[in-house]
Computed example of a mutant assay.
Amino acid sequence: MKWEGISEFVYVAEYESFTQAAKELGISIAQVSRQVSALEKRLNIKLFYRTTRKISLTEEGQVFYQHCRAVLDGLDAAEQAVSTLQSKPQGRIKLTAPVTFGEQQLLPLINDFMLQYPDIEVTAFLSNQKIDLVKGGYDLAVRIGRLRDSTMMVKKLGYRTSYVCASPDYIDEFGVPQTLADLSQHNCLLGSVDYWHFKEGSADRNIRVSGRVQYNSGYGLVDAALKGLGIVQLPDYYVQKYLESGELVSFLDDYREPEEGIWAVYPQNRHPLPKVKVLLQHLQQNLPL
């Protein structure tokens, strides 16, 4: 009796939606609503503010949610711990990662991983937006670069390197910049910001650049560079194969920013379950370190 409605309450709290909670739990919306209402009646408190547009937790609901989430996490961990004594790691892993890195690097590695562990299911949501892991019910996020959220547990998986490069045709016509100041004389292919990151001695430098092209697409910028439209700064997974083939040439290497970390991030109150641990081990073994 005490457990009735707890899962339904937690899912509604995390998705802020009775409809989505019902979908995730595989039950009807009416059943979710009945269970939450019965839970509120049993506790004699109001857990949610409900309007036609939004559902949000009351102050009492927030307190109750934190305790319920911890209990469900403990049950998941206990269930997984027992299952791993009897079989290979199993269950669903829900993760999020940046879009291009996820498409080019992460998902192929996860596909290899799933061939090794047929009892594991993976749901991956690729987004360049920072996602609330707890509310979304994620097991982990893969993030790149400097981390600012000190409330999360972190494990380093690998690194990425950015290159400044251009096509041989562009170099033949306009030459190679020898210093950071020389970039002002060149057509630079811009991404979502109008500056590039460098390291000059021990100092971090953000150099403002300009040019005829500004895309929020790494693929579009690579294509522009290959066609001789200008100079580009992009991570290795965009340009590595073109550098190796000679279709792009790297320069200003002495000013290259140190490698950026690739991190697995997960909430402090959730120790990685065995299924997540084996995935993290797989990524650490196959991403460049």
Rank of each mutant, 00 (worst) to 15 (best):
Q268P: 00
G246M: 07
T84G: 08
A225C: 07
A22Y: 05
F48G: 06
L25Y: 05
R256N: 05
L75A: 14
I231V: 14
A81G: 08
V154W: 04
V154L: 09
S245T: 13
L234A: 10
Q62W: 00
Q185P: 08
L183T: 00
I131A: 07
Q185E: 15
K156C: 10
A264P: 15
M114F: 00
N216V: 12
S83E: 12
L183W: 01
Y215N: 04
Y195T: 06
W196T: 01
M153Q: 15
I131N: 05
S192Q: 13
P108M: 06
P108R: 06
S167N: 05
Y159T: 11
E59W: 01
G26K: 03
E173T: 13
G175R: 08
A70D: 09
I262D: 09
S33F: 07
V154N: 06
F9Q: 01
D169L: 06
T123H: 02
M153A: 14
Q233C: 13
V278E: 02
I93W: 01
L279F: 08
S56E: 12
P89A: 10
V193H: 13
I110S: 02
Y15T: 15
Y49E: 11
D169C: 03
S56G: 13
F113V: 03
I262N: 04
L43P: 07
M114Q: 15
D76T: 05
T51G: 08
S83D: 11
D112E: 15
F48I: 09
L280N: 07
L115H: 08
F113S: 02
N111T: 12
V265H: 01
V164Q: 05
G136Y: 12
D73F: 07
N286Q: 11
K275C: 10
D139Y: 00
Q240V: 14
D204H: 15
N187M: 00
G5M: 03
V176P: 06
V209A: 04
E8I: 11
G102I: 09
Y11Q: 10
I131P: 01
L147F: 09
S192G: 03
S250C: 12
G136A: 08
L252C: 04
K135R: 14
V99W: 06
R208H: 11
R42V: 08
P267S: 03
I131G: 01
E247M: 06
R148Q: 09
L243F: 07
V71L: 15
P98W: 03
E79V: 07
